[in-house]
């Protein structure tokens, strides 16, 4: 959306504003969240479009990236391990993944809390006990929960992919604050998170080359699924309903013409 809309008031500006107002009627709010608008790289994801669906293999690799990289700092507390079955992991795999973490449960009959291996019904384990602990470990910054991060950012998946691949050396005229990193897509360009993805950082089970772009693409696919697990069902239902309503609309209109035929 237009930023730096630098124009003094004139009839022309009013005319421009009018044209935009028509668009604003449909999408006014999203105009605001982003900082200076930097054009996002043009990436297409399998879940875009009206027939969108998740790429299971990519989402599984993305989960691996999350687990091995992101999960050290970022929680995803809306998700349970059982949800991973939806991206094509088997029961046994899910059980195995859950069992790798220790979950505090209790109190038991003696009134004591105890640790046990995770179960598919457990929520994803949080890396920190609370926000204070997270900030203390991260130079004062709070790594946000990633459960719905794709819905919580302007341009969702495209922005996330851009952010993850948008680290670069700061321009000469920019002085970074201590502990900050330069990212061309982050609002204000100074982000506390160091570049999280490095080439070859994750060894994918299926042999996919772990370039930074591939890692970013896969983890974005995974996070998009995590934010909108209903997406496939929703879009498939939408296609059917719109088709149904189109046919029904034709029939209803024909009925209306027939009813009104004697009036005209």
């Amino acid at each position: 959306m237009p930023k730096g809309f630098d124009m003094t008031f004139s009839l022309k500006a009013l005319a421009v504003a009018l044209g935009l107002a028509a668009g604003a009627a449909l999408a006014p709010a999203p105009a605001l969240a982003a900082g200076e608008a930097v054009k996002l790289p043009d990436v297409r994801f399998s879940f875009n479009g009206i027939f969108g669906h998740f790429d299971r293999a990519s989402a599984q690799r993305g989960f691996q990236v999350y687990q091995e990289v992101c999960a050290n700092c970022h929680a995803m507390h809306q998700l349970s391990y059982r949800n991973l079955r939806e991206i094509g992991l088997s029961d046994a795999e899910v059980r195995g993944i859950a069992a790798t973490v220790q979950i505090v449960d209790g109190p038991n009959d003696e009134g004591q809390m105890f640790e046990r291996p995770g179960r598919p019904s457990d929520r994803f384990r949080k890396p920190f006990a609370n926000e204070k602990a997270a900030r203390a470990a991260n130079n004062g910054a709070y790594p946000p929960d990633l459960s719905v991060i794709v819905k919580a950012r302007e341009n969702g998946a495209a922005y996330l992919y851009a952010l993850l691949t948008g680290y670069e050396d700061p321009p000469a005229d920019v002085t970074l604050m201590e502990g900050m990193h330069y990212n061309k897509y982050f609002a204000g360009h100074q982000i506390a998170m160091a570049a999280p993805l490095n080439e070859g950082q994750v060894e994918f089970h299926d042999g996919t080359q772990a370039s930074v772009e591939q890692l970013a693409r896969d983890v974005t696919q995974f996070l998009a699924w995590a934010a909108e697990p209903e997406l496939e069902q929703r879009k498939a239902m939408g296609v059917k309903i719109v088709l149904f309503l189109t046919i029904l609309g034709g029939l209803v209109y024909a009925v209306k013409r027939k009813v009104w035929a004697d009036v005209h």
């Binding site: 449909l26 999408a27 709010a29 999203p30 605001l32 969240a33 009206i50 819905k151 919580a152 950012r153 302007e154 969702g156 929703r234 879009k235 239902m237 939408g238 296609v239 309903i241 719109v242 309503l245 189109t246 029904l248 609309g249 209803v252 209109y253 009925v255 209306k256 009813v259 009104w260």
Partner: peptide
């Protein structure tokens, strides 16, 4: 009733496109 039905189906179609394909377009990401 016949004429309102035509409008109603058009309304449902518009509504459905919003709900099924752009459910968060009118909301704020924050």
């Amino acid at each position: 009733t016949a004429k309102d039905s035509v409008g109603l189906v058009a309304y449902f179609a518009f509504f459905a496109i919003l709900v099924f394909f752009f459910p968060n377009m009118l909301g704020h990401p924050d």
